[in-house]
Amino acid sequence: MTGLLGAAGIAHFLRPEPFDSIVPPRLGDPRFLTYASGAVELGCATLLALPPTRRLGGFAATALMVAVYPANICTVQKHWHRPRARAIALARLPLQVPLVWMSWSVANDRSEASR
Score class of each variant (00 low, 15 high):
A113V: 12
V23R: 08
A63L: 14
L4Q: 12
G6D: 06
P18L: 10
F13G: 11
E17H: 01
V23A: 13
V23Y: 07
H79G: 01
L4I: 12
L5D: 05
L99C: 14
L47N: 04
P51D: 08
E112W: 05
S21D: 14
C74T: 04
W80H: 09
L27R: 10
L50E: 05
R110P: 01
G6V: 02
R15C: 03
A67P: 06
K78W: 01
S103F: 02
M65H: 06
A39R: 11
L5F: 13
E112T: 07
Y35E: 12
R92T: 11
R26L: 13
T34P: 04
P70N: 11
A8C: 04
A36M: 15
I73C: 04
R55E: 14
S111M: 11
D20L: 03
P98L: 13
C74Y: 09
I22A: 04
A11T: 06
H79C: 05
T62C: 08
A85W: 00
P24W: 06
P83T: 02
E41L: 13
A7W: 06
D20N: 13
G3T: 12
F32C: 07
H81D: 15
G9H: 05
S37P: 06
I88F: 03
S37G: 11
L93E: 10
T34K: 04
S105C: 13
Y69V: 12
W101V: 15
E41R: 08
G6K: 07
G28W: 05
L93S: 08
V100A: 11
R55K: 14
I10G: 01
T75F: 00
S21Y: 02
L27W: 15
V68P: 06
L56Y: 07
L33W: 15
A39C: 10
M65Q: 13
S111E: 14
G9K: 05
L5N: 05
R55S: 14
T62F: 06
A60G: 10
F19D: 14
P16T: 02
G38D: 13
M65I: 05
L56N: 00
W101M: 15
L48R: 06
V100Y: 02
P94Q: 11
L50H: 08
S103C: 11
P70W: 03
M65C: 12
T34E: 12
R110C: 13
A67I: 08
A71K: 03
H81F: 00
I10P: 00
C74K: 03
P30C: 08
D109S: 14
T46Y: 07
V23H: 04
V40L: 15
R86S: 01
R15N: 13
L5P: 00
M1L: 14
R115M: 04
Y69N: 06
G28C: 10
L5A: 09
T2K: 07
G43R: 08
R92D: 10
G6W: 03
V97S: 10
R86Y: 01
A89Y: 00
R15P: 00
I22W: 03
L50Y: 02
H81M: 09
V100K: 07
L93V: 04
T46Q: 02
